[in-house]
Simulated assay, not measured.
Amino acid sequence: MKELILICGGIFGTLSLIFGAFGAHALKKTFTEDHLNSFETGVKYQMYHAVILIICGITFPFLSSLQIFMGWCFIIGILLFSFSIYGLTWSSARGKKIKILGPVTPLGGLFLIIGWLLLTINLAEIAVYLNP
């Protein structure tokens, strides 16, 4: 699991750079300012959470179910949150908004929130262990 977390962090980080550059240059001609802002939100959140995945992969052994669930929450959250935003903005700019993606974005956000809560619990356990 630890390897998956690190690999996903690297892939998501790389993709956020590619998507960010694509949004900043290629999409300016076809996206409105609102579309670009939404797309940028997806890119930023993807990068933030790619970094968190890498930090978690370095920090935790991913032997407990709590750590494994945390990792999956971040991975699923990134996929649902950021990629639904990409799909929504892309389809909306083309005049054929994929409405099913609308409820997916907050569901992805919920997974990210749960991931952060689990990260906090895991960090608290480390703090208790290091400072009895």
Rank of each mutant, 00 (worst) to 15 (best):
I58T: 12
W116L: 13
H49R: 05
L79K: 06
G10C: 12
G20R: 15
G71V: 09
H49Y: 04
K99W: 07
I58H: 13
I54N: 05
I85P: 01
R94C: 09
T32S: 15
I18F: 10
I114H: 04
G57M: 01
C8M: 12
N37S: 11
S91Y: 05
Q46F: 09
L63E: 13
T14S: 15
S65R: 12
G109P: 10
L6W: 02
Q46M: 14
W72F: 13
W116F: 13
F60P: 02
G102W: 04
P103M: 06
F74D: 02
G109L: 13
I85S: 05
I78E: 02
I54M: 14
F111K: 08
G115P: 02
W116H: 11
L88A: 08
G42N: 09
P61G: 00
H35R: 05
K99C: 00
H25K: 09
R94F: 04
E40Q: 14
L107I: 15
L119Q: 06
L53F: 04
A26D: 13
L15S: 10
E33R: 11
V104D: 00
F60M: 03
S64V: 03
H25Q: 11
L107A: 12
K97F: 12
L110K: 05
L15N: 06
Q67P: 00
M70P: 01
F74A: 07
E33F: 07
G102D: 12
I68F: 03
S91T: 15
L63N: 07
S16F: 01
I85A: 00
S92I: 02
P103E: 02
T32Y: 07
I76F: 12
F31R: 08
I98K: 11
E33D: 10
I11E: 06
I58N: 08
S64G: 03
V43D: 03
L119I: 09
L110Q: 02
I11W: 06
W116G: 05
C73R: 01
F83Y: 15
P103G: 10
N122G: 05
F22L: 14
G23H: 01
S38K: 14
K28H: 11
L110E: 07
I78D: 01
P106F: 10
K97M: 14
A24M: 03
G13D: 13
Q67Y: 00
M47E: 08
